[in-house]
Amino acid sequence: MSVDLDGWGVAVTGGAQGLGYACAEAFARRGAGVALIDLNGETLDRAAERLAAETGAPVHAIPGSVVRRAEAEAALAQAHAALGRLDSLINNAGVYPRKELYEIGDADWEASVGVNLRGVYNMTAAAAPILAGNEPRAAAPSGRPVRGRIVAVSSVDAFKAHPANAHYAAVKAAVLSLTKSFALDLAPKGVLVNAVAPAAMATQKAAGSGFLEEFAAQTPIGRAADPAEVAAAILHLAGPENSYIAGETLLVAGGYVME
């Protein structure tokens, strides 16, 4: 069943490429207006033009960083103004640093924490009052109506030991804890906060690394995910079909890790 998102407003961090773009496309093809928030201005502009041309949806390019709170708040405020209404936030911006366990330096920690964890916090904190202030789009079966939804992108690495990039895995595990804290605080206000934990995805960047073949050999399904498959899971959690899930993490890993 195709979900009709006409009139919806969705902001996606790291939305200019990879999974972020796939998420934006999933929403836009269903009629939602989309704000792509990304640090790479040139790539961002091209992505917004392409998505608008291919879907006919309103697409807004919002250059900005999620690392500093003031900048994150400004980017989200710009996205909200452009969309007119913000219904969902997808916290997808991230960096994937690989460093052997005993070679991780201060700068490596600061980069991973800054984007992968503090960025999630900054954007979620900025979105919380906006979403909680929305008029509900539909009446709840009973109890509190849903006013907004937030999804954070973690990683399957949060569930396993990973000496080749332990700082990344640790930070992505922290995203799951942060998701639960926000979910507990915001659910009574009508905002559902969840996370997804994908494994390797067949993005253009990953395809050139040689890693996908290695990953496929370790996965029962025998391949990496297409970004659109992960985006479909995010669409479910961040769209109108989710009216009851809060504080959960959905693994999208092809059986690579089972919880």
Rank of each mutant, 00 (worst) to 15 (best):
L36V: 13
A70W: 09
A72I: 13
R50L: 06
A140G: 02
G190E: 15
T179R: 07
Y121W: 15
G114V: 03
V151A: 12
A22P: 05
I245Y: 11
A11K: 06
N116M: 01
R46T: 05
L212V: 06
R50G: 01
A75F: 12
S2D: 08
L251N: 13
T55S: 14
R69L: 06
R98E: 14
E54S: 15
I150L: 04
G105S: 13
L51Q: 04
A138L: 00
G114T: 04
Q17H: 11
D6V: 04
E71S: 15
A93P: 13
A174M: 09
F27V: 04
A74Q: 13
A232S: 14
P163R: 05
R147W: 01
L131H: 10
G119L: 02
V252G: 06
E73Q: 14
C23V: 15
S65A: 11
I37A: 12
G7L: 03
I234R: 12
A246G: 02
N194R: 13
R69G: 07
E71D: 15
P136E: 01
K160G: 00
A140Q: 02
D4P: 04
A232H: 08
A174L: 08
S155P: 05
E248C: 15
L250Q: 07
G64D: 11
A206F: 00
L83S: 03
D108E: 15
D108Y: 14
G9K: 01
D157I: 05
A199M: 04
A47F: 11
A225L: 07
A187V: 15
A158H: 09
I62S: 08
A125H: 11
K160W: 01
E42F: 02
A75R: 06
G9T: 01
T55G: 11
Y21S: 00
I130T: 10
K172F: 09
V156L: 04
A202R: 12
A35S: 07
E103W: 05
D45N: 10
P136T: 03
A246L: 03
A75V: 06
A74S: 14
L250A: 12
E241L: 15
A79M: 08
G14C: 10
A81S: 09
M1H: 10
W109L: 07
A158D: 07
A35D: 06
Y21L: 11
H167M: 13
A200F: 11
L44W: 03
N40F: 09
V59L: 10
G56W: 08
D108K: 14
G190Y: 15
L117C: 01
R137K: 04
A61M: 12
Y121E: 06
E73F: 12
D6F: 00
A246R: 04
G254R: 04
H167V: 15
V12C: 00
A72S: 14
A158W: 09
R30C: 10
D157Q: 13
A246K: 03
V66A: 04
N116R: 02
A126L: 08
A200I: 03
A111N: 10
G239E: 14
G148S: 03
A139F: 00
V257N: 08
D185H: 14
D226A: 15
A206P: 00
H167T: 10
A228W: 03
G56I: 12
